[in-house]
Simulated assay, not measured.
Amino acid sequence: MDKIAVLIPCYNEEKTIGKVVDDWKRELPEAIIYVYNNNSADRTAEIALEHGAIVRNEYMQGKGNVIRRMFREIDAECYIMIDGDDTYPAENGREMAKLVLEKQVDMVVGDRLSSTYFEENKRPFHNMGNTVVRNSINTLFKSDIRDVMTGYRAFSYEFVKTFPVLSKGFEIETEMTIHAIDKNMYVENVIIEYRDRPEDSESKLNTYSDGFKVLRTIFRLFRFYKPLGFFSIIALILLALSVGFFIPVFAEYLRTGLVLRIPTLVVCGFALIAAIMSVFTGLILSNIQEKGKRDFEMELIRLHDTSKR
């Protein structure tokens, strides 16, 4: 098992990957640096090899697919995940590794948003999107994560080996964050100095399509991790519809003593039944989720014991 593994997912980063590898070899000379090449059409893999990194390939396109491969193949006491575009400083790497190795932190988040991100990043919709995603997750999951979508993180062995990678693309960071919050894992924030990409380096992010994927991921994970809250919201909406349909029928009944809008009353009844069913669905799924958390804790204990042998 490696002591520290630096994981760099890459797709067409020949302009910056050499500097990134050199920076990490300087800051953490004891670390093993892995570059995972994701079907690059340029010299990314060749340059990474020239600068002393271990290069492996993932042929399924997408950052989530690359991270799945990394987490499966590499065993280390501490993992540091960094992008290959030279936007994150290697100087914070040792501090983040110490938090994992000495304080047993499960995930260290490289917080861009509390420092230079909004000044350095030239894409205003990205700035707004990061703020919306952070506020949404902290509100829905009652957390204090300062940067949800950062690609600069450090992980413990237990986190990596128990994290189920489901996302295929850039929404993977959101999935990691929500997993750590839900499983009550130890999370720390470290403020980092973000710098924008060099002028001749092109971002792979699509503001609108990737932003939509992230929001869809939040919606899906909220339903999965907080089923009682999710289905209670649906129940409240259905209850409001039921009451809205019932009020004119009841008002007419008080005025005339007759129920003349039978179809409306039927719709009112169906909406009320659906609201009740939604509440019970949330309760059942919440109990299943609670059992899943207990099973997860037992898996953590087993994994911890195995890693210490």
Results as ranks from 00 to 15, higher is better:
1 M>V: 13
8 I>D: 02
20 V>S: 01
21 V>H: 01
31 A>E: 03
33 I>F: 03
38 N>I: 01
41 A>Y: 10
45 A>R: 02
46 E>I: 09
50 E>A: 14
52 G>M: 06
57 N>W: 10
61 Q>L: 11
62 G>V: 03
63 K>S: 04
63 K>E: 07
63 K>I: 10
63 K>D: 07
67 I>D: 00
67 I>E: 02
69 R>C: 15
77 E>G: 15
79 Y>A: 04
83 D>I: 10
84 G>A: 05
88 Y>H: 07
88 Y>G: 03
93 G>A: 14
95 E>R: 05
95 E>D: 09
96 M>Q: 05
96 M>V: 11
100 V>H: 00
106 D>M: 07
108 V>P: 01
110 G>K: 00
112 R>V: 04
113 L>C: 14
117 Y>H: 06
119 E>N: 13
119 E>D: 15
120 E>I: 06
121 N>Y: 06
128 M>D: 06
133 V>W: 01
134 R>L: 09
135 N>C: 12
135 N>A: 14
136 S>W: 11
136 S>V: 10
138 N>G: 09
141 F>E: 03
146 R>Q: 08
147 D>T: 12
154 A>Q: 04
157 Y>P: 00
160 V>F: 04
170 F>S: 07
179 H>K: 03
182 D>K: 11
182 D>V: 14
186 Y>F: 10
189 N>T: 09
192 I>Q: 01
195 R>W: 01
196 D>P: 02
200 D>M: 09
201 S>Y: 07
203 S>F: 07
208 Y>V: 14
214 V>P: 00
219 F>L: 07
220 R>N: 10
220 R>S: 12
221 L>I: 04
224 F>G: 08
229 G>L: 10
231 F>N: 07
237 I>V: 15
239 L>R: 07
240 A>K: 08
242 S>E: 03
247 I>S: 05
249 V>C: 07
251 A>F: 09
253 Y>K: 10
254 L>I: 08
260 L>D: 05
262 I>S: 05
263 P>M: 13
264 T>D: 07
265 L>S: 11
266 V>E: 11
270 F>Q: 06
271 A>I: 04
272 L>M: 13
274 A>G: 06
275 A>D: 08
277 M>D: 11
277 M>F: 11
277 M>K: 09
277 M>L: 12
278 S>Y: 01
283 L>D: 14
286 S>M: 08
286 S>V: 04
290 E>K: 13
291 K>T: 13
291 K>Q: 10
294 R>S: 05
294 R>K: 11
295 D>V: 12
296 F>L: 05
297 E>T: 12
299 E>S: 08
304 H>C: 13
